[in-house]
């Protein structure tokens, strides 16, 4: 890709020297222009991924990472956008495939995508009050009312924190194995008992 063209045209764009693919930090105000320039001038015509992330210990708490693929040049580029005030412009006008990815990032992190055509939750139900992938949200969940009031009335069921039993994923002591999980001794069967 033509990195010089990108950084000279968008001076706020910062090269993060990615180890696996060209990586840039893009300002939210430039995002749409950068993505459309990459799409129309440099052939990055496929949005491979878009996800939210939470960065602890950084002034801006949330960010969005976009992976673009060029199907003609067979190369990727990664764009990193900080969500200032939890807001990022939506790229679904340029790449319609971003629509559901952005809804997921909104659902899980509460990042608001400005200009999104359908800014609803996608995984949790619409009245759910939290954003479960945030670091301050407990894995077990927080008690809230059941999604459907009439069903809750018949069953008395609430959305309850799951019993974690000291978990998640408790192992009962011992040394952690570093090998691939496999059946090591396969010499014994039901007919031929273990020696």
């Amino acid at each position: 890709m033509d990195a010089a063209a990108l950084t000279s045209r968008f001076p706020t764009t910062q090269d993060l020297t990615g180890k696996d693919m060209p990586t840039y930090r893009v300002a939210g105000s430039d995002l749409l222009a950068v993505v459309s320039a990459l799409r129309d001038e440099q052939g990055f015509d496929l949005l491979a991924d878009l996800c939210g992330l939470e960065l602890q210990g950084r002034p801006v708490r949330f960010g969005v990472v976009i992976h673009l693929l060029s199907t003609t040049h067979k190369e990727y580029v990664r764009l990193h956008v900080d969500a200032v005030n939890d807001r990022v412009p939506s790229v679904s006008s340029l790449h319609p495939g971003a629509n559901w990815h952005e809804r997921e990032a909104f659902d899980m992190f509460g990042i608001v995508f400005e200009g999104h055509p359908d800014p609803r939750r996608i995984l949790m139900w619409d009245s759910y009050p939290y954003h479960p992938l945030r670091k301050d949200f407990p894995l077990a969940g927080i008690e809230v009312p059941f999604p459907a009031a009439d069903v809750a009335e018949v069953t008395g069921q609430k959305v309850e924190p799951a019993p974690m039993m000291g978990g998640p994923f408790v192992s009962h002591g011992g040394k952690m194995s570093t090998g691939e999980p496999s059946a090591l001794d396969q010499s014994w069967t039901e007919e031929k008992p273990k020696a």
């Binding site: 995984l123 949790m124 479960p132 949200f137 407990p138 894995l139 077990a140 969940g141 927080i142 069903v151 069953t155 069921q157 959305v159 309850e160 924190p161 799951a162 019993p163 974690m164 039993m165 978990g167 998640p168």
Partner: peptide, 17 residues
């Protein structure tokens, strides 16, 4: 019982409803 999904999203057993 909810199985291995001890998490915020999963009903812990369909016998609750």
């Amino acid at each position: 019982t909810g199985g291995m999904y001890r998490s915020y999203s999963t009903l812990q057993g369909v016998d609750n409803i």
